[in-house]
């Protein structure tokens, strides 16, 4: 590997750009292919591999999880997400919730989601969950997530909450197809009881979307 290629791969990661390094295993010749210029599935599923004696090494940006709501369930989701290599950002405009004492190990933004999400470049390596139950906070955040290509959108709330949220978002101009991206009620149905088990079901569902595209 040439030092320039190594530098470019490290730089791309810092800038959250996906790149592939394609190596001809017979000659050692290498080239960089940017995400969008080929190997779509390999990027999507983060899967490096050999094709025709060429090794395609996928270098995707780090996984990131954005949590709307510095709530109890967030506290259970965070350690599981971190163990699965997500960088976690928690956003909640309510200062009493968004306290560093409650959330010591994450990026914590005590701001309205619509003020800070546009600066976070929601991309295909980002998972998104809205957990506040409060439409004032969750809805503007969900609207921005729906307009992005985040890998997962989850929204906490009962079937009734989901139905009224759906009506509001339809009124805001989103289509059935767009709204189908929202996983709500959130998480795989594993009969979860309590915050830690709900957190497991949420991270399992996010993993399923990441690895299987479901």
């Amino acid at each position: 590997m040439k030092a320039e290629i190594l530098r470019e791969v490290i730089e791309a990661r810092a800038q959250r750009r996906g790149v592939a390094v394609v190596t001809d295993l017979d000659t050692g010749a290498q080239q960089i292919v940017a995400r969008g210029d080929g190997f779509e599935d390999a990027f999507r599923f983060d899967k490096s591999g050999v094709v025709d004696e060429k090794f395609v090494a996928i270098h995707n940006p780090p996984l990131r999880l954005i949590i709307i709501g510095a709530v109890h369930i967030a506290q259970s989701i965070i350690p599981i997400a971190q163990a699965a290599n997500y960088d976690v950002t928690v956003i909640d405009p309510r200062g009493a919730f968004a306290s560093g004492a409650r959330f010591p190990d994450v990026t914590l933004l005590a701001e309205w989601p619509q003020d800070v999400l546009p600066g976070l470049a929601l991309d295909a390596r980002t998972g998104f969950v809205a957990l506040t139950h409060d439409p004032k906070i969750d809805d503007p955040a969900l609207e921005l997530a729906l307009k992005s290509d985040v890998l997962y959108i989850g929204a906490l709330g009962s079937k009734k909450t989901q139905a009224s949220r759906r009506e509001r978002l339809m009124a805001a101009g989103f289509s059935d197809e767009q709204l189908a991206r929202i996983h709500g009620p959130i998480g795989l149905n594993i009969g979860a009881v309590g915050a830690p088990e709900i957190a497991i079901s949420v991270m399992a569902e996010m993993t399923q979307c990441l690895r299987l595209g479901a």
Partner: peptide, 10 residues
């Protein structure tokens, strides 16, 4: 891909 290794290489 494990980036700590590439960063170490650099």
């Amino acid at each position: 891909m494990d980036h700590t290794v590439l960063e170490t290489a650099s």
